[in-house]
Each structure stands twice: as structure tokens, then as C-alpha cells.
Simulated assay, not measured.
Amino acid sequence: MTDNIPRMGQGAYWQDLQVGQRWRTFRRTITEADLVAFINATGMLEAIFIEDGYAGGAIRGRPVPGALTYTFIEGFILQSLIQGTGLAMLELHQKILAPVLVGDSIDAVVEVTAVRPTSKGNRAVVSSRIEVFNQRGEAVMEYTATRLLAGRSTT
């Protein structure tokens, strides 16, 4: 049996988190292939995303959907902070501050803003503020997320 061997890449349990803790994610450059794959997967066939140099667009360059920016950052958070401990996304409030273009590199700072143990089971409601930046250090998105996280096993 291997149950007593720690799992590689295991996320943080709610007991490991404190209000004010902060982490910085890795950075990722968004490519044309990322944009095309995302559009094909989601059906976001909007002209500003599928036509290079769309004349009716308000943004110069090759903009990407805010949802793509968000999902890359959530991927970082999942892989590093809540893998195996995240139980549910309960609430999300998002604000787009600036466009992200193909070729931009994004990363984020995640800050724990609340940890509230639940009365049922070994879990807690954890809130965080996520600030997303481009390669120039400009804020491009901010959002708050409230998640249900598992606790460390008591057995």
C-alpha cells in the first residue's frame, strides 16, 4: 500500500493558509497557437479574435479573450496551490483592466484574503485576490475567487 507516501504536487490544505499569504505564479507567453486552440475549443468566433488586423477592432495587435488570460492563471493556481485539495469554485468576480495580446507574457500574484472553516467536514471556504500582470508589470486583470478547499486528513 502506498497511501502513507506523500503525493508529488499536492496542493495546500486550508490549514496551511493564512490571510495575507502571497505567491507569484510562473509566467507564460501567449502564442498564436494558444489563441487558435482556445477559440476552437470555446467557439469564441468573434472577428477581433479570428481576423488578424480586424478593421473594426478597437485594440491594435492580436487581442486574446479575457477568458483565455483567466484560464491560464487558473491553470497555474490549480497546478501549484490547489491540486488535489480544491473541492469547488464558489464565487468569482473579475475585472479586465487592459488588453492582453498574442506575444504577451502573463503572471499573477495570489493573496489569501479569508479562510473560514466550515461546520461540516474537514474543509474551509478560502477567498483570494488575484492580480494578473503582463511582461511590462502592467496590471491587465484582477479577480477575487472563493473556493472550497479540503483539510488535512485527521485519520
Rank of each mutant, 00 (worst) to 15 (best):
residue 155 T to S: 10
residue 46 E to L: 13
residue 30 I to S: 01
residue 86 G to S: 09
residue 146 T to M: 06
residue 61 G to V: 12
residue 145 A to E: 03
residue 66 G to R: 02
residue 12 A to C: 09
residue 154 T to A: 14
residue 115 V to F: 08
residue 78 L to E: 09
residue 36 V to M: 02
residue 73 I to V: 07
residue 147 R to C: 03
residue 36 V to F: 00
residue 85 T to A: 01
residue 121 G to A: 10
residue 2 T to S: 14
residue 18 Q to C: 06
residue 95 K to E: 15
residue 18 Q to P: 03
residue 64 V to E: 04
residue 3 D to R: 11
residue 134 N to W: 09
residue 14 W to P: 01
residue 2 T to F: 11
residue 73 I to T: 00
residue 28 R to P: 00
residue 65 P to W: 04
residue 91 E to Q: 04
residue 113 T to L: 05
residue 20 G to M: 05
residue 75 G to P: 05
residue 67 A to I: 01
residue 35 L to T: 01
residue 59 I to V: 15
residue 62 R to V: 04
residue 121 G to I: 08
residue 132 V to I: 13
residue 155 T to N: 13
residue 116 R to S: 08
residue 121 G to P: 12
residue 82 I to D: 05
residue 114 A to N: 07
residue 74 E to N: 07
residue 3 D to C: 11
residue 8 M to Q: 15
residue 53 G to K: 10
residue 69 T to Y: 03
residue 133 F to A: 09
residue 19 V to N: 00
residue 77 I to H: 00
residue 22 R to K: 13
residue 47 A to Q: 10
residue 138 E to T: 15
residue 86 G to L: 08
residue 118 T to C: 13
residue 55 A to Q: 12
residue 38 F to E: 00
residue 70 Y to Q: 06
residue 112 V to P: 03
residue 120 K to N: 12
residue 61 G to D: 06
residue 123 R to C: 13
residue 38 F to T: 05
residue 147 R to I: 11
residue 83 Q to I: 01
residue 67 A to G: 09
residue 52 D to H: 12
residue 100 V to Q: 06
residue 71 T to H: 01
residue 139 A to W: 04
residue 6 P to K: 06
residue 114 A to P: 01
residue 28 R to E: 09
residue 134 N to V: 12
residue 117 P to Y: 09
residue 105 S to F: 03
residue 116 R to I: 04
residue 46 E to A: 12
residue 137 G to E: 11
residue 9 G to A: 10
residue 140 V to A: 09
residue 28 R to H: 11
residue 103 G to Y: 12
residue 40 N to T: 08
residue 21 Q to E: 03
residue 97 L to Q: 15
residue 105 S to L: 02
residue 88 A to Q: 03
residue 89 M to E: 07
residue 124 A to Q: 05
